[in-house]
Nucleic acid binder design. Structure first.
Lengths: 245, 245
DNA sequence: CAGTGGTCTAGACCACGAG
DNA sequence: TCGTGGTCTAGACCACTGT
């Protein structure tokens, strides 16, 4: 009957256009991780769509990992927790067997000119400078992961005024609070190498021991590359489990 | 109104009970991979459910990877193609750059008593015997993967009357046609090791070169373990991509 | 209790594929 | 043209959460 008040290509399904619209709101910071988004009913009234259509849009965003439903309470912006992603790949255990909380030990934090490879990953132009961090992740005083991190200086300048040593073990909350940058998704590529001298020293390994290398490109809600990092971990702790269907 | 003619716990949602029922039909071989299942309309009429409910049940099975929808044609039993799963993990390329079709080179096929580990994976009792196959997967005469395969003899006895050398490069179609066993899903665990002498020889590697080990447990539609295999591949060909959200 | 998401229905119309 | 899956509606009732 009446024209639905939704932007976007009118040839696309309404639920998709609503999903796109909500994704855009998310990117613009209309709601923050942990916030409740409007209820299905509110959205249906606001958009003039049927409840079922709204539901389908929300379902899509839930599938994408952006939203989270809680029966009886509402639909919420999901808080991505990337630092558990390490434990998808490595079986780190603390001495007491319980949940391992890797401590961050910063070894360096400077501005530098990124390599061409990193520059392209971060979609920076040739003049752009970057902040680079080198750190160890440590469990029970045992180094388990060695990391090299690159950030475009433009967005993360505030980090240089900070004492990262005292700032906590997780970087993404710091990116958020100090730089206003929210990491919403990431791509990772795993490969296997033999450790060079540097990595051997950092992780306490024998020369040429196998190491697993994880390259991660983290992005904001709108897909802008925010951070590139490369992590080395001992391969004998590596284990990845998957289903095929 | 009328009682829906569906088995199962009546406290469960109807779409879930229908999905369970269809999954059971699949397991029982009512339809084979590639077959078309009844249309949404037919199912709705048969079960006395609304079309939307049937749709939800099918959506679930599609998510599980059991079915596949083709707009305008129907809903089909998915043909799982596991041998492309290698290429999720390894970047094998043929000399001419095109699609790599690894050739199977059988090295041994005998009956044997499985180790306790394999026996438990296959849920066999202590008296049960097994068939074991050792083979190389070869691309352009280069060995890329070394495999050790274990099957419960009870289900796969027909294999021993066969000349596997001439039977083709993919085992799962043979399991199907010769033994009536359809592989519907599998779990894989990836780890990294350093190559022992045996693996070095098989893959043409230096001693102590890193290798990626893939353990796979393949199951039928009802979850019965059908095959356990362990594959070794050179780690410098390994690469795994994933998304985090 | 009110408000949320979850299930289910009945029916309309659209888009695709094949004869 | 027909049968298939895909989108969308309008409304009923259920189940969970908090007050």
């Amino acid at each position: 009957m009446s024209a639905p008040a939704l932007k976007g290509d009118h040839r696309l399904p309404l639920y998709q256009r609503l999903a796109d619209s909500l994704r855009e709101d998310l990117r613009a910071g209309r709601w923050r991780p942990g916030d409740r988004v409007p209820s299905e009913n509110e959205l249906a009234v606001d958009t003039g769509l049927a409840a079922g259509t709204v539901r389908q849009a929300l379902a899509r965003l839930v599938d994408e990992g952006l939203l989270e439903r809680r029966h009886g309470k509402g639909t919420f912006v999901r808080r991505p927790s990337f630092d558990q992603s390490l434990f998808r790949f490595f079986r780190f255990r603390s001495i007491d067997g319980t949940k391992p909380v890797p401590v961050s030990r910063i070894r360096a934090c400077t501005t530098a000119i990124p390599s061409r490879y990193v520059r392209e990953k971060l979609q920076m132009n040739e003049e752009g400078r970057a902040i680079t961090i080198r750190r160890l992740r440590v469990i029970d005083d045992q180094p388990v992961l060695s990391e090299e991190i690159w950030l475009p200086e433009e967005r993360f300048a505030a980090l240089m005024d900070l004492d990262l040593q005292k700032a906590g073990d997780l970087l993404y909350p710091i990116y958020d609070t100090e730089c206003g940058q929210i990491v919403a998704s990431a791509e990772e590529v795993l490969t296997v190498e033999t450790a060079d001298n540097d990595v051997c020293q950092n992780l306490g390994l024998d020369v040429a021991a196998p190491v697993v290398v994880i390259e991660r490109l983290a992005r904001s809600y709108d897909g802008t590359p925010l951070e590139w990092r490369r992590s080395w971990g001992r391969a004998d702790q590596f284990s990845y489990h998957t289903e095929i269907r």
